[in-house]
């Protein structure tokens, strides 16, 4: 794998929503390079025919019945909010648009 340059780290930082200084970018870039070099060893194990394991005890279809349970009080919901207004969470302006 190619070494991470400053732009790569900047891209990762943006995807991760982490504001980094140039110095931090360089510092993390070096460290990530070292770590990536160490972990890239997983590729040594040929595993084409090996299925992935996600959990210790493989179970399926764990569901809950469609039954209403009590919600939090609105006071509790908003208790941690850095800013609230009109019973809603107040957030800074949203510059770009992205909807699902």
């Amino acid at each position: 794998m190619p070494a991470l340059d400053r732009d790569d780290v900047a891209h990762l930082a943006r995807l991760s929503r982490l504001q980094l200084t140039d110095a931090e970018r360089d510092h993390y870039g070096e460290q990530l390079d070292v770590i990536l070099a160490a972990v890239a060893r997983v590729a040594e194990v040929a595993a084409d025919d090996v299925p992935p394991t996600t959990h210790a005890v493989p179970v399926v279809n764990v569901t809950r019945p469609d039954v209403v349970v009590p919600c939090l009080s609105r006071e509790d919901v908003l208790s941690g909010a850095p800013a609230a207004e009109d019973d809603r969470f107040r957030v800074p302006r949203i510059l770009d648009e992205e909807e699902q």
Partner: peptide, 15 residues
């Protein structure tokens, strides 16, 4: 288990 009813007061159907 929060209800899905449309039009409830804000942040009252939240857990």
């Amino acid at each position: 288990g929060c209800p899905t009813e449309f039009g409830a007061a804000p942040n009252t159907q939240v857990c």
